[in-house]
Design a protein around this nucleic acid. Structure first.
Lengths: 231, 231
DNA sequence: AGTCGCATGGTACGATGTACGAGTCAATCG
DNA sequence: CGATTGACTCGTACATCGTACCATGCGACT
């Protein structure tokens, strides 16, 4: 019936039973798989940006027909979801009961930001997509760490969301500006033209300051100060 | 030559010279204009979301041909830019030298957030677009207020970006969740299924807490605490 | 009357996401 | 053994999109 296979994605390749890799070992492409599709989608997104990902190009890179993709994937949105989540995995210290909760939080959040900046499309994509398991995993970790650090339950959610918000905003902004001022001259020019209308911005060189990492760290410090002044 | 008119958009309607409203007053549509296009685009976006905005639909609503739009607008991206910025205007107290800088900042940022939530598409759009004049205006105001409040110049940019980041992240997240849990049952169901994997999130009901406004205000308070502990 | 700039919009093209259904091949069953 | 089944691949086709190109209309000025 060609049921298109919904839900149970558990059919993990027809292999692992009979002979191993029956035919064409090094010849042509390995068989399609969800993982391979996602990995290639990430490659394509890295290389061409959000608009560069089309099902046809994706199929080309995979050496397959376009419609074959739809066996493994529901639709293009699905590809975006999977690519996004695949990029946000965190292999940090999951199980450290260290006294240095603040260091742990900072580490995870900086890693989060770095992961997204390594794939700038992810930042602009995230606002539109649902929370994948890797994102939830990070939230869980954050939750656990803060809770163990003694943050009151009443403030816990606020603390988590504040940190989440800060990281999201910082990363999205950064990923964005990075693209928009590839032409330094353009920025410079626009800046001087705007300086009359926005003198304070001009004076503090807000838009030209590019110590993003430092600003991120410093602002995160301020936020954590505020959060821990309660607990 | 049909120079398509670039740059100087200053030609403000052919009117204001001879007679007023020459022909067809109440008959059919008023003439096309950048303003009318943008206003209608916002309507459409409000009604149908980001994917609902197509040039054809926009032209239909305006009672014009599709290609007529392109006289007033460069391309679809342009429409997005204009619609986005048009929604972020701020008519707050621009010139108050009040002692209550904190109240002023909170007011502007809450208004910012509210403006974006009134048009949920704006949140997911903003990360991809350049900074329009209204956004810059808000940054300028923020800059001025903080500066007058005595924030050290060295910390000024960090403070501004921190607040910006917080607001962006909060608004984007909120606009997103709002859409995704239209079906309460689905959320509830998914939640219980996830509870085993993410116990702390489950316990604090992080994903079900919907006092967004309160959380926003509270978190903003924390951040401002942290920021002013320096200055 | 002729010219020119602003403004409108019909037609057409290339690209996209994906529905549909026909094809292949290995494993399973009678 | 042949028949059946189910996992998987993919060519064709279609609706819809953004927009390039070009013909046209219209008011004002020469």
């Amino acid at each position: 019936m060609a049921a298109k296979r919904s839900g149970a994605r558990s059919t993990r390749s027809q292999r692992t039973s009979g002979r191993l890799q029956p035919v064409q070992e090094s010849r042509s492409e390995p068989p399609l798989s969800r993982e391979r599709i996602v990995a290639t989608a990430v490659e394509l997104l890295d290389a061409q940006g959000v608009d560069g990902l089309t099902m046809r190009r994706l199929a080309d890179r995979l050496g397959s027909g376009v419609m074959s993709l739809y066996w493994h994937v529901d639709n293009k949105e699905d590809v975006f979801d999977l690519a996004l989540d695949s990029v946000l995995e965190y292999r940090g210290p999951q199980m450290v009961e260290s006294r240095d909760w603040r260091g742990q939080v900072v580490h995870m959040l900086e890693d989060w930001r770095a992961s997204m900046l390594r794939h700038p499309w992810s930042a602009s994509l995230l606002p539109r997509r649902a929370l994948g398991p890797n994102i939830l995993g990070r939230l869980e970790l954050l939750s656990k760490t803060l809770s163990r650090a003694g943050v009151a339950d009443a403030d816990l959610n606020v603390a988590i969301w504040s940190l989440w918000n800060y990281v999201m905003g910082a990363t999205i902004s950064r990923a964005n500006f990075d693209l928009s001022d590839d032409g330094r001259a353009a920025t410079q020019q626009r800046h001087t033209r705007l300086s009359e209308r926005y003198p304070t911005i001009e004076r503090s060189r807000l838009l030209l300051d590019n110590d993003w990492d430092g600003a991120f760290r410093k602002g995160l410090g301020f936020l954590l100060d505020g959060l821990s002044s309660r607990g």
